[in-house]
Computed example of a mutant assay.
Amino acid sequence: MADAEISVVGEGRASSARDDGIQVLRRAAAALDEIATAPGRLRLVDLHSRLGLAKSTARRLLVGLVEVGFAAVDDDGRIVLGDRLLGLASADAAHITSAFRPTLERIAEATGETVDLSVYRGGQMLFIDQIESPHRLRAVSAIGGRFTLHDTANGKATLALFDDADADVATALAPLDQAAADRVRAELREIRTARMAFDRDEHTEGISAAGIAGRAAGGNVVAISVPAPTERFKEHQNHIIAALRSALDSPLWSS
């Protein structure tokens, strides 16, 4: 009987340790998401406020992230992602870029427009590859740039992969007023049916875009978008949509 009691106690401690470990990982992931969303703009006081943690807990979390190279703090106390994490992310991005490059090339050839490849990271879209249009007047985004979700074609295509009640959607729409958030939610429902998202002069005046998104290997959410000056986009919209729909048939998407 004593042995059985010892076993139960041991299992309870092991379960508690696992729960504690999972909580730490969740907090670390949340902290990295916040840092990635506002790189070089957050200090410890911002981190503990955004995470809803005691300052001492946030400090221990940050110290741990810095020790393993997942975060770094400059002389002014501002927090950025660490070299070790950026190296892992770069390797991941390189794999995705290599896999999707032929698809981007086919879309570029079919449309004659710029084609962008981005991944969902930290509540934003991170641009990882691009084929530029040969037109003198063209839409170009910097590789490594981050864009919001609610007003971009790739961002809205990504949001449509989540349910309306998902935290990712709620976070993306949080800066909007109620009316604007409701409009985006209605648009997301349409995107889920059509599997195509649009940005019509929303993110940048004079630039429109169409985009698709899906889940790829490793659970990454990947988006492909075609931006163009609005007048030319309207003129060639059908060709752009057809090229993107063709890309949806690629075996690169896991679901």
Rank of each mutant, 00 (worst) to 15 (best):
M1N: 10
A4Y: 04
S7I: 12
E11P: 04
G12P: 05
G12H: 08
R13N: 11
S16H: 11
A17V: 02
Q23H: 11
V24L: 12
L25C: 14
A29G: 14
A29I: 13
A31N: 11
D33G: 10
E34G: 04
T37I: 12
V45T: 14
D46M: 00
D46K: 06
S49H: 09
S49F: 10
L53T: 04
T57F: 06
R60N: 10
L61D: 03
L61I: 06
L65A: 00
E67T: 11
F70E: 06
F70C: 14
A71Q: 12
A72K: 12
D75P: 01
R78H: 13
R78M: 05
I79T: 06
L86E: 11
G87Q: 03
S90L: 11
A91P: 06
I96C: 08
A99T: 12
F100S: 00
R101G: 00
P102D: 03
L104K: 05
R106L: 13
A108Y: 00
T114R: 00
T114N: 05
T114I: 06
D116E: 10
L117G: 00
G122P: 04
G122W: 02
G123S: 01
G123C: 02
Q124K: 12
M125P: 10
M125A: 09
L126W: 04
L126F: 10
E132W: 02
H135W: 15
R136L: 08
S141R: 10
A142K: 13
I143T: 07
F147E: 12
F147P: 06
T148M: 15
T152C: 10
N154H: 14
G155H: 03
A160N: 05
A160K: 05
F162P: 08
F162A: 00
A165G: 02
A167W: 04
A172C: 08
P175G: 07
L176W: 01
D182E: 13
D182Q: 08
R185Q: 08
E190L: 13
R192W: 03
D199T: 02
D201T: 03
E202A: 13
H203A: 14
T204H: 03
E205H: 08
G206N: 14
G206Q: 05
A209F: 14
A210C: 07
G211S: 05
G218F: 01
V222Y: 01
A223D: 03
A228E: 09
P229I: 05
E231Q: 07
F233A: 01
H236Q: 15
H236G: 13
N238A: 15
N238L: 12
S246R: 13
S246H: 14
D249S: 14
S250N: 02
